[in-house]
Design a protein around this nucleic acid. Structure first.
Lengths: 241, 241
DNA sequence: CAGGTTACTTGATATAAGTCAAACGTTCTG
DNA sequence: CAGAACGTTTGACTTATATCAAGTAACCTG
């Protein structure tokens, strides 16, 4: 029997995530060359690991479908969700030093593409612009992490508002609805990611709902008022409401 | 008159920061080649900019002497100190995407070395391992930023204890005293960096002083009890004291 | 579909840290 | 060296968020 998964494989050239994922910034011929090197579409189910904290650097991965989270365990043994990854987003840069400093875990059923460690040099040689593009992606991820650091100083309400707007924007950029989506995280995970207690997350979501800025039924979110959410996300703590 | 500054220039080969800075991981001959490409020792005084948020990517810099801070201004116009840079540490990776997402500012008189944007490709070509080493540095910086993210969830006392231990360790790795040093930041800047009010910083420092874990007179710090500080930094909020 | 498990909500209470206000010490400058 | 400017400390008070506790709703799984 032929491998069904294999039949479904989509090369980088055919993939709809071209302007977000690794192919970003590369010419059509370059992407074709890249396709031969990239290992396509490993399927993983919820809670399965793409790589684990402490693993030797495995390579650079790209989410093709589904979502994942980056998680690190601190010296106390406490887990921290560092980021949420959507289709087209790259991961693995945390391992370039030598070993992965965090784990990447599927939040639902996902397909991942892989540029394995031992083929990166070859790939960069064949596609000279790839080196530069990988640096750019790495820089983008650093900047996102720095933005999250800034978010960590905001009030709970601002954190939640920013989180929802950020998800909405990123989903839209990938062709999904920006106003209706299913949260990939439990309240507990949202709280962990944003540095809030689970009860606080619950209360703040209710509050935003009462203000008619969004609607949330368990995991199903509907954004109702972008401007309202942005006002909250950006309001200076000194300003009047 | 000959340029006095120029006379003082130290090439990468002679520099004591070889195992921390760009030369890390390169052979002696590679470092020699690198020396010809790296622009050495621009002197900058307190509050002067190495680069500015919004600047087109300038290049990768290394602090040779002195200290600097990475600062970003958020959409509200509020400043956030993202990191403190010590001798041998690299900066500029935030700009690889295209423009610098934060500013780098001298905290005192510093000497910086520069691998200018337009020479990076040439340098990586001449020294093939350099590309890999730059990726490693970039990954290290990402990991440090993620660690800071985790720190952002700790209590004020833990933040201060970690901050002091971190500085102490990094200073020691660079040949400075690990127990006595001059803080490069005001209380205000410490508070900004750690997400605490200036008054809280003042009170917490006093508290650590009363517990005989450290001594601080204005900017002059003496670490008195490493184990004590580490216990605070790592204690689980559930544990008994 | 019954019983258990997990996820979420809600209320009451405690507390760490922020804010406001004032005073004090240090450093700089003319 | 007097005065200003800046940085730091201290105290009183407020508040956002954590914690504790209990109950409800959703979702497995046999």
């Amino acid at each position: 029997m032929k491998d069904v998964i294999n039949d479904l494989k989509i090369s980088c050239s055919q993939c709809s995530l071209g302007d977000i994922c690794i192919p970003r910034g590369l010419s059509k011929t370059e992407v074709k060359t890249l396709s031969d090197v990239v290992k396509q579409k490993t399927i993983l189910y919820q809670n399965e690991y793409i790589y684990r904290q402490g693993d030797k650097f495995k390579g650079i991965f790209a989410i093709q479908t589904g979502m994942a989270k980056l998680v690190t365990i601190d010296p106390n043994g406490d887990e921290h969700i560092l980021s949420i990854l959507l289709p087209g987003e790259l991961l693995g840069f945390d391992g370039l030093g030598d070993t992965h400093s965090c784990s990447a875990i599927a939040l639902n059923t996902i397909n991942v593409c892989e540029l394995p460690r031992n083929r990166i040099e070859q790939a960069c040689h064949k596609v000279p612009n790839l080196t530069y593009e990988l640096f750019r992606h790495s820089s983008d991820i650093l900047n996102d992490t720095q933005t999250h650091l800034v978010t960590a100083k905001l009030s709970g309400e601002q954190k939640i508002a920013k989180f929802m707007l950020d998800l909405s924007n990123r989903l839209q950029a990938r062709g999904f609805s920006k106003s209706e989506f299913r949260l990939p995280l439990t309240r507990n995970e949202i709280g962990n990611h944003l540095g809030l207690a689970i009860e606080t997350v619950s209360r703040l979501l209710k509050q935003l709902q009462q203000k008619k800025l969004l609607d949330i039924q368990l995991r199903e979110v509907t954004i109702l008022d972008y401007d309202g959410l942005m006002q909250i996300a950006h309001k200076d703590s000194n300003e009047e409401v």
